[in-house]
Amino acid sequence: MSTVRRLVLASYAARWVVLPPLTGVAMLALIVGAVIVAPREAVEGEVQRLFYIHVPAALAMYTAYSITFVASLAVLWRRDLRADAVARASAGVGVLFTALVLATGAIWGRPIWGVWWAWDARLTSTLLLLLLFGGYLLARGLADEHDEQAARFAAIFAVVAFLDIPIINMSVRWWRTLHPQPIVLRLPGDQALPNSMLAVLAVGVVAVVLLALWLIALRAATEQLAQRTAALRIAMDRREDE
């Protein structure tokens, strides 16, 4: 347990040294892989290459929202406003990647399904995710950075929203479904994708999740600096009043 903890802390301390070059290399590999290495899909054609961004972006989105959830729990338990900065940062990045998922999906859907948007279960629940965490950002953004009450409220909303995701997914799936069924997570003998595509997809997942983590780290650092600035300004005002 403590080894894991130490490892996590060490990698967190090295984030500015490790994340940018690693993300850069992985993104380059993703671009080369998706555009050049991966074979042309026989039925769908070139537009299928969006798949190498679409699926990783969806994973990055869930990663970001999970970080928001954990950080929000930390806000509630530890009353630590630094966790609030992390929660806000990852929610923002999550909303960004949700929009990316929806946009790439729509661009793919137009030639393949014939429509930009379909009221399919996954599309609908992803749109609801966008609305939920967009609402979270809105609610948090309307209050000051150092408003602890607002931070607690936003954290509660994030926890409720995150825990609502399974129920939303279940209800919308019962409502209707059209999205392609998962083709990646299958048994090795039963793989639907050729190995070259799987390899590019794996690179894509690493690259996009790294990018998301880097953006979250950057954003969280910015938010924490903003909090410190606000606190300093308050302290200065108090000094001047005395």
């Binding site: 609801l128 609305l131 939920l132 609402g135 979270y136 809105l138 609610a139 309307l142 209050a143 408003d147 009450q149 607002a150 409220f153 909303f157 409720v160 929203a161 609502d164 129920i167 939303i168 279940m170 209800s171 919308v172």
Partner: peptide, 20 residues
């Protein structure tokens, strides 16, 4: 009363959660 424009915010926050 801590959050401004809460009248707008309540439906914005509540309705997506209430979709199920």
């Amino acid at each position: 009363s801590r959050v401004r424009s809460r009248e707008v915010l309540l439906p914005v926050l509540a309705l997506p959660l209430l979709m199920p």
